[in-house]
Design a binder for these strands. Sequence first.
DNA 1: CGCAAGATTTTTTTCGAAATATATGACATT
DNA 2: AATGTCATATATTTCGAAAAAAATCTTGCG
Lengths: 217, 217
Amino acid sequence: MKIVGTVGSSTYEAIKRDVIFGKLSPGTKLKLGHLKERYQASLSTLRETLSRLASEGFVAAEQQRGFFVTPVSKEDLIEIANLRVLLECHALELSISQGDADWEGNLVAAHHKLRRMEDKMISGDLSDKETWKRYDWEFHLALIQACNSQNLLSLHAVLFDKYLRYQMLVLTYRGKEAVDEHQQIFEAALERNKDIARAMLKKHIVKGLEHTLAVME
Amino acid sequence: MKIVGTVGSSTYEAIKRDVIFGKLSPGTKLKLGHLKERYQASLSTLRETLSRLASEGFVAAEQQRGFFVTPVSKEDLIEIANLRVLLECHALELSISQGDADWEGNLVAAHHKLRRMEDKMISGDLSDKETWKRYDWEFHLALIQACNSQNLLSLHAVLFDKYLRYQMLVLTYRGKEAVDEHQQIFEAALERNKDIARAMLKKHIVKGLEHTLAVME
DNA sequence: CGCAAGATTTTTTTCGAAATATATGACATT
DNA sequence: AATGTCATATATTTCGAAAAAAATCTTGCG
């Protein structure tokens, strides 16, 4: 039994994915007529979708001039990385203070899945970037899951996706370094060592930022 | 020459205002048919508007069950206040470090306007809460305007409005205490004293939170 | 009386087309 | 050649109605 959502929700997912994973390049004009064919939805449904994406910041809307894929810039990337540090480190600290056994269990599971995937990537199999990034996402989410603030989690989700778009844009893999950072954050979190965990997470994000900035030349 | 925006943008403003200022109570079912009459817009336009408000968190959307005004709760208010402390204090610090003469000028102006309004309120004239809150908004915005992060400013804007809804909900005025806090934050910011400014802003937000929580019984 | 199956009404979701605005190109004027 | 105007084409915005889903009401049965 397959549960299909509304046309609206699936076009939302599709366009968002295409923006994040670069199938729709930054700055591209999103003409409704074209999108209609590409995503098989009506103009109204598309406008609804694009409005949502615009208020999350993946799309830019100009009054009576239509929609565009939000442009990228170094400044924007830096802002997003800094906000991720601020929010994610804060959430991590809360999570470490408040997390229970369920939190630990999910974290262990998420780290395990990510680790397996990363081992595969390191040994040269770069075939499934999307799954890899999904596991990365799930690991970072598992870390802060116990922060006990829905508002914080949802702000973080959007930020993470924006950051992810930049990573997908440069398309290069940071390799063993990032794997080690994940490992260190993971261990510090399980040991409930807030300061180390926080410092490692910050380092992880900042290193990722520098790497991406460097590739953007 | 009067510049009128699109129907969409004005219904967006109208509904958002009605949610924030309590004309649409928390939890209310937003039936499209009713909204159509109330706001004089078509179903598609309304859906577009409600989708935007949903992704900002002022409205809750349930798949195939329509839209509701986002409910309120103590937990949600506490989350929002804590996030405001985190983001606004951070932005204030950046602003104080980087603000130039323009920043100072705008800040002085914004504080002056707010101060005049507050004096009027203290002397018993509670007739124009909406203008008062607009000046409050503009003062807090002026404080962090020079933080040099559009992303941070737009996250803050949504957060501030959500906090504002709770303040409007309880409808009581904190009086001279809040006025003094504004004054102290203002002076510390102009003197470029980050630590004091930060501490006062945090106190201001936390006191406001406690006051609102107390009234929510 | 309670409860469930089916029919009716209401509401949400989706679409296509009309109305409005912007962009493009042809043509005349300086 | 540059600029401005007007007609044409293209795109966005808005609407009302059809299709799909959910909620409500009715009826029949144990």
